[in-house]
Amino acid sequence: MGNRTMIALQTLWIKECTRFLRIWIQTLVPPAITMSLYFVIFGNLIGSRIGQMGGFSYMEFIVPGLIMMAVITNSYSNVSSSFYSAKFQHNIEELLVAPIPNWVIIAGFVGGGVARAILIGIIVTCVSMLFVDITLHSIPIIIITLLLTSILFATAGLINAIFAKSFDDISVVPTFVLTPLTYLGGVFYSLTLLPEFWQWVSKINPIVYMVNGFRYGFLGVSDVNYMHSLGLLVVFNVVLLGFAYSLINRGVGIRS
């Protein structure tokens, strides 16, 4: 990779990080507040009556899922809103006229989404430590799952923004697809509580694998095999990154 390409990638990544840090009240504070409410309501108030789940207190059980929920939402919305705004204001043209390989455009935007997701992950983890002692079963698994999930949803946000023609288009997917899948993705319950049919249906939901993979990293328990989670994450990443590359290469949504 040439030095010029590296400088271009670094510039775009720094620009993306500067963007979400500049508007920290919109990007960093809300997840901290939302997750605190989840911990208070579901963890403390309701959780104390639920008792144990998967061999852990309900609060401990939901912590990995809540972190993952924040990571998914923020990596997705960061890239979808940033890329769509760049299209809307036409400053995407700054990148299109420059001698930047298309993969750098993808890496820069996705890298920005991943940076925000990791930062949010750290913030939510810190918030959760106010309510519960965190167990770490495997740090490498936590890091790998966190990275692959944030790359995956940042890329999905990018694809959404490429096709989007209005600001409504970038809110439709998070509202009608991402949120239901996340809530039904085993964040608040173990799949073993569901009847067999609904367990099977739940396993079609890819977010189940991410939440459970992440939970396995923290607690060492999971409703699905961790290798399945990892394999699925890798496959989804390859497919979505390949699709995003093909779209940018053809200039879909960005070139006339």
Binding site: I7, T11, K15, A86, E93
Partner: peptide, 27 residues
């Protein structure tokens, strides 16, 4: 270009320095 196509929320320095970066000019 004919239309203003920079990020209106960035400072002038950020806009021009970033553009140079996209062309591989060191910071």
């Amino acid at each position: 270009p004919q239309e203003f196509n920079f990020n209106q929320f960035e400072t002038l320095t950020q806009i021009v320095v970033n553009q140079a970066g996209y062309y591989g000019v060191p910071r």
